[in-house]
Design a protein around this nucleic acid. Structure first.
Lengths: 210, 210
DNA sequence: ACATTAATCTAATTCCATTAGTTTAAACTA
DNA sequence: TAGTTTAAACTAATGGAATTAGATTAATGT
């Protein structure tokens, strides 16, 4: 009978408010990046949108790059969740590989600001922190394991190493996304000069490797 | 007997000095971009290197973006010369295609600042001018003609359209260069996780299309 | 009540791009 | 040759943005 739905202690309430504000700031930052370009992140504008002045942001992030870094980590986690879902659904089949390539483009179109931050580097003064980069190495491991499984089960048949196969898939996946984003970012997945190449590229790989 | 090697008129001398200074500024700008990143082009630093103060640069360029634009055009002309040379030497053979892919990576490694400006966009507030973009459309035309010739002469055999073939080659070429530059920019052409994929990628295409 | 602390603010600093206005020296003109 | 024009430089000023310093407020803890 002590507590049916225990009230929050002041400490917890403070923490919750703080976390909420962090989330709000990141959300506002993504909006600004989408509207004004990834590199033009403007602290005054973020502050305006969350209802404070720019210097107050420093209670939540130590500087502008810390905001980029939080978004880098967030974006990496989002992409990994997206990828894990595809892997669970399709496994390591050729269809799965096609879905993964398509999924990379989907992610890029749905979250262009995060995509650019994660996979198209040069933000003026920003380099991902060691923590952020660890997430990104994790992603490469997942890709490599997927390819190794596909080779072990015979889906992919080639004398090339799993590393070469992985890298080639990355090249094609990234090449398509980069060109689509640069030239026809408004067109949906599966359409346009580059977006429509996904199944064609997979056919070419299939012809070479099965 | 009028003039053995005619002296320059004052007008010509003035023009020559002006042109020289423009070239010096662009050279200094490339240095700064290489050292501090493409997006961090700093007018004070350029000015220091050519021996003047920042506002004096405005006698030669109307603003910072005009410098980017001049470099865009310069870089595009350099790349086209590079490409024309390869085309003349190897023609539209499979070896020629391999050299072109390799040549794109070579250009990217030798002129990383121009490569990023030309082929990896987002410089904060800069969009290429119409003139600069015309150069870039020209490049696509050259690529498309090359592929059409290769298909007409039977080097490339496929039911795909020349446009699809061109775009796929662009995807692979750019994908390799982007990954190499992002991950192992210090390694020379032909080496590293991505640089070594060039011949492998060409083999895959050859298997699919000949 | 008093002290602490988080969260906010305003004001100040620094770094840039860009503009305004001035000076100098060369070149043209009468 | 003297006076005018013009290119090319300068210094000083403006305005935007990140960041730091210092003061204030309000909630919490003792």
């Amino acid at each position: 009978m002590e507590k049916k739905k225990r009230l929050l202690t002041p400490e917890e309430r403070r923490q919750r408010n703080h976390d909420e504000m962090v989330a709000n700031i990141l959300e506002a930052a993504r909006e600004v990046m989408r509207e004004q370009g990834v590199a033009d992140l403007n602290l005054q504008e973020i502050a305006r949108r969350v209802g404070m002045r720019a210097p107050s942001l420093y209670n939540y992030f130590s500087n502008r790059n810390a905001i980029y870094d939080a978004l880098f980590t967030l974006g990496m986690q989002m992409y990994q969740a997206h990828l894990a879902q595809l892997l669970a659904q399709y496994g390591t089949t050729w269809e799965g590989i096609e879905r993964i390539i398509e999924g990379y483009l989907t992610y890029a179109l749905e979250n262009p600001e995060l995509y650019q931050l994660l996979f198209e580097r040069p933000i003026p003064g920003y380099e991902p922190s060691a923590d952020a980069l660890a997430e990104s190495r994790n992603l490469l491991t997942i890709a490599h394991e997927m390819v190794a499984t596909a080779m072990a089960t015979g889906t992919i048949q080639t004398t090339q190493s799993a590393e070469v196969v992985t890298n080639m898939i990355i090249v094609i996946m990234h090449g398509i996304a980069a060109q689509h984003l640069a030239n026809e970012p408004h067109l949906p997945v599966g359409t346009g000069r580059f977006g429509s190449l996904v199944p064609i590229a997979v056919d070419i790989l299939k012809k070479a490797w099965s």
